[in-house]
């Protein structure tokens, strides 16, 4: 799977997210495979990774990663090159009538109240921890999925501020890292957050359902927009493909070239 997607992206699999801000907008619900692709890519390159899991628990990512041939558990506990922030658990701790003792250190509580500084500090501290392992590669921060914050009541304004601060400390700062933001958006939901992210990012990946409806053999369409930026000067270009998902792999093919119709 790794090779196929890298080939489609036309990137070198040994140093792909190189100081980029990647925005993955998933308008269908099948785009999750890209998250696993990026995790796998970072693990294969032995790159320090900070993962903010807002939509699933660690076990889910770990079991998919095991199917793809990497072990996140040992990466987290032994190699220390993965920091996993259990966002789903932390958010669920916020919904209660009793304020427990854990609430003071919960970055999501202040975020849902409209203050993102504590969350940014958490990421900053994680990056500092990752810097300790002295990896030759720059760190990567993945957020899956940003729209969970929007659903749980954070205003688009706060999220925009958050993304801006994260971008400042990760890609623009001295760490020269990469930030990958995954966001599942509804078809009718072209909101300001989406517009802002599309503008800010250096690579925009958009995943959509087929316009003609559900098909067993073509699960969706993927569009990648490479933007010219100061950090990564290049010719802007767009590439399209359609994909079919399997249990642990993905098949990419040109538009209308599915084996089912040929």
């Amino acid at each position: 799977m790794l090779a196929q997607i890298c080939q489609f992206f036309a990137v070198d699999s040994s140093n792909f997210p190189k100081n980029e801000l990647v925005f993955v907008g998933d308008k269908s619900s099948d785009g999750g495979f890209l998250i696993h692709y990026f995790i796998n890519l970072c693990q294969k390159q032995n790159r320090p990774l900070c993962f903010v899991g807002l939509s699933q628990s660690f076990n889910h990512y770990n079991s998919v990663a095991q199917k793809l041939g990497t072990n996140l558990l040992s990466a987290r506990d032994e190699n220390k090159n993965l920091i996993f922030i259990e966002g789903l658990k932390l958010i669920s701790e916020c919904v209660s009538l009793h304020s427990g003792q854990f609430n003071e250190s919960n970055p999501f509580l202040s975020l849902l109240k409209g203050d993102s500084t504590q969350f940014v500090n958490t990421i900053d501290a994680s990056l500092a921890n990752l810097a300790k392992i002295q990896s030759p590669n720059a760190p990567v921060v993945i957020v899956d999925d940003l729209s969970v914050l929007l659903r749980s009541g954070a205003t688009p304004k706060d999220i925009i501020l958050l993304v801006n601060s994260l971008n400042n400390i990760i890609t623009l700062g001295p760490t020269k890292g990469s930030l990958i933001i995954f966001s599942s958006l509804d078809k009718d939901e072209e909101n300001e957050l989406c517009a802002f992210l599309s503008h800010l990012c250096s690579v925009k990946i958009e995943i959509t359902n087929l316009k003609s409806g559900y098909c067993k053999d073509v699960h969706g369409q993927i569009e990648v927009l490479w933007k010219d930026s100061l950090l990564n000067p290049r010719e802007p270009k767009t590439t399209h493909s359609q994909f079919k998902l399997f249990d642990k792999s993905v098949e990419l093919f040109a538009l209308g070239m599915s084996a089912a119709v040929l």
Binding site: S57, S92, G153
Partner: peptide, 15 residues
């Protein structure tokens, strides 16, 4: 956002 936050939290608890 109350109901959606409840569902996110419920998922977090059940996991």
């Amino acid at each position: 956002p109350s109901l959606s936050l409840f569902l996110i939290a419920l998922r977090g608890v059940l996991r």
